[in-house]
């Protein structure tokens, strides 16, 4: 299993690491039992995501996909951010080993979770806009809700 140079670059020099204390939305996906947790913070002005930061517990791919996802949505409109797919994250990283594809799914879900929180704070039901957020995309019997 080898990572692309882009993955290693985003792992070694992750962009947008940290917290946004006055975030407008915070989303967290994954769980410790599966070995990865991603937490995304977003700042929204008008309809634009003006800032985005992340904190991640996980493997190299989990850190790199978190970093890339923040880059891909920063400065974008909410609509554009909602269109972000795991495939786009993977392509931007020049691919991921097959066993790590779930990390990109987690990154996509983390963005959606943050947007979901943003709408909830505004008193708007997020489900029709954002969809259902899955806790993790694994299927390896780790015992988490998604596996069960």
């Amino acid at each position: 299993m080898a990572y692309s140079e882009k993955v290693m670059d985003h792992f070694a020099n992750p962009r947008n690491v940290g917290e946004i204390p006055d975030a407008d939305g915070v989303g967290e996906v994954g769980n410790s039992k599966c070995g990865d947790i991603m937490r995304m913070y977003i700042k929204v002005e008008g309809n634009v995501i003006t800032d985005c930061k992340f904190k991640t517990f996980g493997c190299g791919a989990a850190i790199a996909t978190s970093s890339m996802a923040t880059e891909l949505i920063k400065g974008k409109t909410i609509d554009e951010a909602l269109q972000l797919t795991n495939k786009a994250v993977m392509e931007a990283l020049d691919g991921l080993p097959p066993v790590k594809v779930h990390c990109s799914v987690l990154a996509e879900q983390a963005i959606k979770a943050a947007l979901s929180d943003y709408y909830t704070r505004l008193g708007i039901d997020p489900t029709p806009i954002v969809g259902v957020i899955k806790e993790c995309d694994h299927d390896h019997g780790c015992g988490c809700d998604s596996c069960n």
Binding site: S32, G60, V99, H140, C142
Partner: peptide
């Protein structure tokens, strides 16, 4: 992660260590 499976080491789990 290194072995291509997503589960933690069966050795460490056999010692009773929690997954996380």
């Amino acid at each position: 992660c290194t072995s291509g499976s997503l589960d933690p080491s069966h050795v460490l789990l056999s010692l009773g260590l929690p997954h996380e």
